[in-house]
């Protein structure tokens, strides 16, 4: 016997204004790209800057995606994330330098293979480091934000010093693998090969993360855990184990980001992660805490805006992202696509 109510539920019509308001963050990137075209005027310069901005944004997204999940899932503010960027870069570039013959060969296959090996090594080391970092430094301070900031900053400093002990205190200069050097011309615009690769990697990672989060049970658990961890546990899932997995994955992604950023700059330093963390935090905040999609949009906005402004008014480049964050927080105080409501 059914005990269904007699009423027939239907989808309510969501007003156009509400639908537009929801979609606004998604429109910001294309709007910024069009505004950039109007402001720069020259299409080839605009295309070069756009690809550069997208590449920068994708690399920041790779780093920020793990951090936003770590915050969203367990309410942990991890300033130590920057250390994983630096360690990843040093490990990856060490592999690259050790396999200098492959990197210097004029073979796309060998060059991509050496980059892949560098990335794998960096991700394994930073993933392992993340596991130890969570266990030793983060776990004792769950729920205490001030202590989290203090101990994770402390962990960051210690790891930076360890990098100096292992690799020396000087910055390391190097060249990208042979076939990833230089640029090719497209519609009169010079497009750096490596930046195209960075865009492809970032986009691929974003699509892969979307698939994991939308199509797998572990992805659902993570999304639900970011929103309401208490209820996920009441359903029978051990969120602490999921969190450790996310922390390790986030650390490994920071390592990947470190290698990518190192190859982008062709120089690495122990403090590079710490310096990048300003941009990463801006991305996490404007994207909305716990939101991978928000971090993606935020990272693209940061990358594009910095490149456009650096071309148009170089003196303003440094403040452009702080101005962006201020504007977005005035518009949406919880960021563009917040997932974490209140904890």
């Amino acid at each position: 016997m059914t005990i269904a109510p007699t009423h027939k539920p239907t989808f309510a019509d969501i007003p156009l204004s509400e639908r537009l308001a929801k979609a606004t963050p998604l429109l910001l990137v294309p709007v910024l790209v069009l505004v950039g075209l109007a402001a720069i005027g020259n299409p080839s310069s605009w295309l070069t800057l756009t690809v550069s901005g997208l590449a920068m944004g994708m690399m920041i997204f790779i780093i920020a995606s793990g951090l936003t999940l770590v915050f969203g899932l367990m309410d942990v503010i991890n300033f130590g994330h920057g250390a994983f960027i630096s360690v990843g870069a040093f490990v990856g570039i060490s592999v690259l330098l050790a396999l200098g013959g492959w990197a210097g060969a004029p073979s796309l296959l060998l060059n991509l293979l050496v980059v892949l090996l560098a990335v794998i090594a960096a991700m394994i080391v930073t993933g392992g480091l993340g596991w130890a970092f969570e266990k030793v430094i983060v776990r004792p301070v769950y729920g205490a934000h001030l202590k989290q900031i203090l101990v994770t900053v402390g962990g960051l400093i210690v790891i930076e010093q360890l990098i100096a002990v292992v690799w020396g205190p000087e910055e390391i200069f190097f060249s990208r693998p042979e076939t990833l050097k230089g640029a090719f011309t497209f519609w009169g615009a010079a497009l750096e090969k490596y930046r195209i690769l960075a865009v492809a990697v970032g986009l691929g990672l974003f699509v892969a993360m979307r698939l994991v989060f939308r199509r797998t049970k572990i992805g659902l658990i993570v999304r639900a855990g970011v929103e309401n961890g208490e209820m996920v546990e009441a359903l029978g899932y051990r969120l602490s184990r999921v969190f450790i997995g996310v922390f390790i994955a986030g650390s490994a992604l920071a390592g990947l980001g470190g290698v990518m950023w190192g190859l982008y700059q062709e120089v690495i330093t122990a403090s590079m992660g710490e310096e990048l963390m300003i941009l990463v935090f801006i991305v996490v905040i404007i994207g909305g805490l716990g939101s991978v999609e928000g971090a993606f949009i935020g990272a693209l906005l940061v990358g594009l805006l910095q490149n456009y402004v650096a071309f148009l008014e170089p003196k303003l480049a440094l403040v452009s992202n702080i101005a962006l964050m201020t504007a977005i927080l005035m518009w949406r105080p919880q960021g563009m696509l917040p997932v974490v409501k209140a904890k």
């Binding site: 209820m231 009441a234 051990r238």
Partner: peptide, 24 residues
Amino acid sequence: LPVPDRARAGIGFVPEDMGIFADL
């Protein structure tokens, strides 16, 4: 026992705030 172990032991919980995952 931790919360997940109690749930897996056979306790279903419907909280006052319903605890649904709004984004899912």
